[in-house]
Design a protein around this nucleic acid. Structure first.
Length: 788
RNA sequence: GCGGGUGUGGCGGAAUUGGUAGACGCGCCGGAUUCAAAAUCCGGUUCUGGAGACAGAGUGUCGGUUCGAGCCCGACCACCCGUACCA
């Protein structure tokens, strides 16, 4: 990102969420688009103008990427090994999002007066149940519905009612199935029966054709609808364990496998065979064909706002949509006054930007207009990695250069990007490949989804959020109401007096139900003690709420500056890495940071004991005492362990090892023979700590007299011969329960180990009066004696 | 409803992938130091019984496989995330 290209000015408040989420201020208009790539984008965009685009739009078109054209490949790559380095759950989410289904697209011939169309195309995944059809349905915003709404006020009213309740989530949950009967019918392909046609509120225009045939016996929604309007319910699939002559559905549609019945030529077939048979028949009759349908929809990339990358096309009355010529790219946004943001709508459509908008058509030279829509920010994030791989930013991507880096070996991001960003990036990379910019099809070989930082939240009794640092914990307290039942909350906290004095929000009285009595708000000590405490008048109870993702509105963020001042940036980083595995959320706690801070101090103190040792040098002697050998083993085990843990993203485990190793270094001596051993240990401690506490490590490095920067020093390597012990401790089990342990040479023969195990006192004690059936020796691991 | 995931001490989490369950940290308890406190250091800390050595139980529940199961298999329960009148 090039700061010199940012636009100076005030951040428009209504675009807060955009700038917060993705971009440094003003990044949009000058996004670093290579000229050639921008041209490719324009071409892709121009080639597809959505036929069903809403017409109310001010600008002349709505721009889509035809991501559905690549749905199959995007789906297949999830399973064919190209994304082996991705977490299974992310792949599963993408699979669901693409939502491929095999089915039948067919048309029912319509009869009735004043028909706007002769047939009604529908989509179904259950053509096997066609004989169970009892009505046809269309979405409220289906063209057919609109046609009749124009003539019939009742119909129009029904549609309006559907649209009014449509979006509210709470409504959808309990929404009743509702329908409106149209004065037309559709002819059944197999039975020639005339089926009634309804507008139904549960049909979505966006999916399939926005129309269905309904088989109430085998679809719950259809059944609910049929029961309400007294329509036929004809079971055509009989469950394996049911009697076909008497099988009927009650209020629950049967969706399982079974045998076809009441289904003419399909009778007796298993449902899974009936499905292709029905499709084949419909195809032979010429009424429709088997198709694949996707839940995935095309990617609408145009946004009616100023902050975004301009879509580089020009609209000409004569030539139509014309791409901006390459030598005029990138298209820059016109500078505008900050006051333009105070009115809703896109400033690019206003009088003030007319001079920018009106340009000569690149083809005929007549007066034409620039596209005023800008791109979805997801467009930018879909290919930035390729841009980084080939610089400079105002030159086209150089394929050879890009392929030197692409695909990204390790991508790290939050789970919130599991679908949109990661799918768009995969799609875009395929486009880049087709345009000849890279050979990669998949952008990210390995994906790691890290967790978020969460923090406790607190609320006062008026539901106001309270800063965690203002909550003083009373760990023995619990809130009770007058009848002595615990109030739904955990422990009691009180707003500190300091916070209140500083003007922090607080409430004047606790819940009326409690404070009416003027006492008994909490009690200290154990629940079986009946002594209640009065509230201290100037302290106020607040309640702990769920631990949540840090958010300014919930007041549970921590200020990085404050943490850095109090504990240092190293401690904050160290704590976050140490507490949880990185794919999980970390709960931020002050106590945790303090622990990290203590560790930092202890490391520094320990290293002080070895001041100058690295500079002094000196070889490690051949005959070391047991203690020194033990320290060396510990050093090298830690090197091996931490290195492996870092490679596998197990930072919390790496840090646990560092704590352990610090304990081992605690009493080291740095005299005589011990000096080189101490130097080795402290040098390793410093280097292994460096990735987590870089500043501390550099201090320690200097103290030890290391050369240059710790960061630049070669990573320590573990000596394999020091990773194993000569004498090992083996646990001994009797019948699977641990009863004792023995010390044996690491390379002891099995017989010797058996002998030692059976001779062990505790083991012998548990075998008294028993016969040994078997002795299992797992070398280096365990001995199990089976006796009865 | 569907899809995915997770269940281990008071808490965050370890467990070499079938081999000593609870590493390490937080918290808590005890001790040292201090006139006192904070800080620091040392020790303890799964539960039950026992002064103790020790014994018994124990990884959401029930069952199975195995010399041996937190880990594998079957059934269930709970919670979390995603998603939805997707025909």
């Amino acid at each position: 990102f090039h700061p010199e290209r940012w636009i100076e000015g005030e951040r428009p408040p209504e675009y807060n969420h955009v700038t917060d989420a993705y971009l440094p201020f003003g990044y949009g208009p000058r996004i670093c688009i290579g000229r050639k790539l921008a041209y490719a984008e324009a071409t892709l965009a121009v080639s597809e103008i959505c036929p069903g685009a809403p017409v109310e739009r001010k600008s002349m078109s709505t721009w889509f990427f035809k991501i559905t054209d690549r749905a199959d490949d995007l789906l297949e790559a999830l399973d064919d090994g190209r994304l082996e380095g991705w977490p299974a759950h992310v792949k599963e989410m993408q699979r669901n999002w693409i939502g491929r289904s095999e089915g039948l697209m067919m048309s029912f011939p319509l009869s009735g007066d004043d028909l706007p169309q002769e047939t009604l195309p529908i989509y179904t995944t259950r053509p096997d149940t066609l004989y169970g059809a009892s009505f046809l349905g269309v979405a409220p915003d289906h063209p057919l519905a609109k046609h009749f709404a124009d003539q019939d006020p009742a119909c129009a009213a029904f549609i309006a009612a559907c649209q009014a309740q449509g979006t509210s989530e709470a409504d959808i949950e309990k929404a009743e199935k509702k329908g409106f009967r149209l004065p037309i019918t559709g002819r059944h392909p197999f039975t020639d029966e005339e089926l009634p046609v309804y507008i139904a509120n549960f049909i979505l225009m966006q999916y399939g054709t926005g129309a269905i045939f309904a088989c109430p016996a085998h679809d719950q929604r259809d059944l609910d609808f049929a029961r309400k309007y007294g329509l036929n319910v004809i079971p055509v699939v009989c469950p394996p364990d049911a009697d076909p002559s008497s099988f009927d559905v009650g209020d629950e549609a049967y969706v399982g496998p079974g045998t076809m019945m009441m289904s003419g030529f399909l009778d007796g077939l298993p449902a899974e065979d009936a499905l292709p048979a029905a499709i084949k028949k419909i195809e032979e009759m010429g009424w429709g064909e088997g198709t694949t349908n996707y839940r995935l929809r095309d990617w609408g990339l145009s946004r009616q706002r100023y902050w975004g990358c301009p879509i580089p096309v020009i609209h000409c009355d004569t030539c139509g949509v014309v791409p901006v010529p390459q030598d005029q790219l990138p298209v820059s946004l016109p500078p505008i006054d900050a006051s333009e943001f105070k009115t809703p709508g896109n400033p690019l459509d206003r009088e003030s930007t007319k001079a920018w908008r009106e340009v000569a058509c690149p083809q005929c030279g007549d007066l034409a207009r620039r596209e005023t829509d800008t791109m979805d920010t997801f467009v930018d994030s879909s290919w930035y990695f390729a841009r980084f791989a080939s610089q400079p930013e105002d030159e086209p991507i150089e394929k050879a250069e890009a392929d030197g880096w692409m695909p990204v070996q390790q991508y790290i991001g939050g789970i919130e990007h599991a679908i949109l960003h990661l799918l768009y990036a995969r799609y875009f990379t395929r486009n880049l490949k087709d345009c000849g910019y890279t050979d990669a099809t998949e952008p990210f070989t390995n994906l790691f989804t890290q967790g978020m930082v969460t923090h406790a939240t607190y609320k006062d009794s008026h539901d106001g959020w309270v800063f965690p640092e203002d909550a003083r914990h009373i760990d023995t307290g619990r809130l009770w109401d007058e009848t002595e039942t615990p109030i739904e909350s955990d422990l009691v906290y009180r707003l500190t007096r300091e916070a209140r004095d500083a003007g922090e929000k607080f409430f004047s009285a606790y819940d009326a139900q409690v404070s009416a009595t003027g006492k008994a708000l909490y009690r200290e000590s154990t629940p079986d003690e009946k002594a209640y405490d009065e509230l201290v008048p100037d302290e106020f109870p607040i309640l702990a709420n769920p631990i949540e993702k840090m958010s300014k509105s919930k007041k549970n963020v921590v200020a990085p500056e404050a943490i850095a001042d109090a504990y240092g940036a190293d401690a904050a980083r160290f704590f976050m890495l140490s507490d949880s595995p990185p794919e999980r959320d970390v709960e931020w706690t002050d106590a945790g940071v303090e622990g990290a801070w203590r560790f930092a101090n202890r490391v520094y103190e320990t290293v002080t004991k070895g001041e100058g040792l690295l500079k002094a040098g000196g070889a490690i002697g051949p005959d070391l005492s047991d203690d020194l050998m033990a320290l060396r083993r510990s050093t090298h085990k830690t090197i091996a362990g931490v290195t492996g843990d870092i490679e596998h993203f197990r930072f919390n485990k790496a840090i646990a090892r560092l704590y352990e190793f610090l304990g081992a270094c605690k009493n080291l001596s740095s005299d005589g023979d011990a000096a080189p051993v101490a130097a080795e240990a402290l040098g390793a401690l410093t280097q292994l700590t460096a990735p987590f506490m870089p500043h501390l490590a550099e201090e320690c490095w200097e103290l030890l007299g290391g050369e240059g920067l710790c960061t630049d020093a070669e990573w320590p390597e573990a000596d394999g011969s020091l990773l194993t012990e000569d004498v090992i401790t083996l646990p001994v089990q009797v019948n699977g329960k641990r009863r004792g342990e023995i010390k044996v040479a690491a390379d002891a023969a099995e017989d010797a180990v058996k002998k030692a195990a059976l001779a062990q006192d505790d083991v012998a004690r548990f075998m008294e009066g028993k016969t040994i059936r078997k002795v299992i020796v797992v070398p280096g691991r365990i001995v199990n004696v089976v006796a009865s």
